[in-house]
Simulated assay, not measured.
Amino acid sequence: MKLFDIEPDATKNLLPQDGTVNYFGKLIDENAANDYLNTLLATIEWRNDEAVIFGKKIVTKRKVAWYGDKPFEYTYSKTTKSALPWTTALLELKEKTEQRTGETFNSCLLNLYHDGNEGMGWHSDAEKDLKKHGAIASISLGAARKFAFKHKETKERIDVFLESGSLLIMKDNTQDHWVHRLPPTKRVAEQRVNLTFRTVENH
């Protein structure tokens, strides 16, 4: 099922079963999205992501950063990060997200994709550090990219096109039953920053 070129309806669940995903469309307009993108590119402490796969450390081209209310530790792919203090821009985007969704968040994982050749493989955000069944809100800035969901058992696919300035939220038991990814594409030459606001409880 593809959800391209469909008018966003924040009240509609994009998943047919076993979870809740709502796409709000644009949270901020194009000019504001470009301003935030440039600010984050210049002020965030970006680092190449690291993962341990089959006992071997892999360093990705994609860059990441981890921010929060406190120096929370967050472990995924067998690597641990300690959260940095919020920047002004991140706090502004967090407040906009909380007002729009009615949720609250205490941390944010950012990803920087330099172009469409960089993506993210199938995974679920179910790390033990995160609030179980808590909401994860995703803001996209820069290049528009396809985002895909796949049911762990039925293998049903749901694809949604995330434009710059847009907001998507995953909640309830979505991470138990679905995996998601950002597929690479040669059609995109521009960079994209993705912010995923989360709630850490294991601190």
Rank of each mutant, 00 (worst) to 15 (best):
A189N: 15
W122M: 09
A89N: 05
N22A: 03
S164E: 03
H133M: 07
A137P: 03
W86Q: 07
T87Q: 06
T88K: 06
E163G: 12
K61S: 07
S82M: 02
H180G: 03
N22D: 02
Y74V: 13
L41S: 14
D18I: 13
F105Q: 02
S77V: 12
D115H: 13
L15W: 11
G165R: 00
P85R: 01
A126V: 11
Y67H: 09
G68E: 10
Y23S: 00
T87E: 08
L130E: 07
K2Y: 02
L110M: 05
T104S: 14
E103Y: 12
I53D: 09
V188I: 10
L93T: 09
E156R: 15
I139A: 01
C108H: 04
E153F: 07
T154K: 13
N117L: 07
I158G: 10
D5A: 09
K96S: 12
G102M: 04
I44Q: 04
E190C: 01
G102N: 04
W122P: 08
I139G: 01
W178C: 05
A126L: 11
A189K: 15
A189M: 15
V193R: 00
Q17K: 15
L93P: 04
A144N: 13
E73L: 12
S138E: 04
E118V: 05
L110F: 02
T39F: 12
H133C: 07
W66K: 06
K57F: 10
A126Y: 14
Y67S: 03
L27W: 00
E163K: 11
F161W: 14
E50P: 05
A10P: 15
A143E: 05
A89H: 06
E103H: 11
N38D: 15
W86E: 08
M120S: 05
G68C: 14
R145K: 05
K57M: 13
L27T: 01
N48G: 11
R198V: 04
H133R: 14
N111R: 01
P184A: 08
L162S: 03
L37S: 00
H123G: 06
K56W: 14
L15P: 07
L14G: 02
A32S: 05
T101N: 03
R181C: 05
I139V: 09
P184S: 11
A144V: 10
M1K: 13
T60F: 11
N173I: 12
F24R: 08
S82N: 03
L27K: 00
T43S: 11
S166N: 03
G121Q: 07
E156T: 15
E127Q: 11
T199Y: 09
K131T: 12
W178K: 11
F54K: 13
V200Y: 01
Y113H: 14
N111E: 02
T97S: 03
K70C: 10
V52S: 15
V200D: 00
R47M: 10
P8M: 07
T79E: 02
A10W: 10
G121V: 08
N38L: 14
M170D: 05
D5T: 12
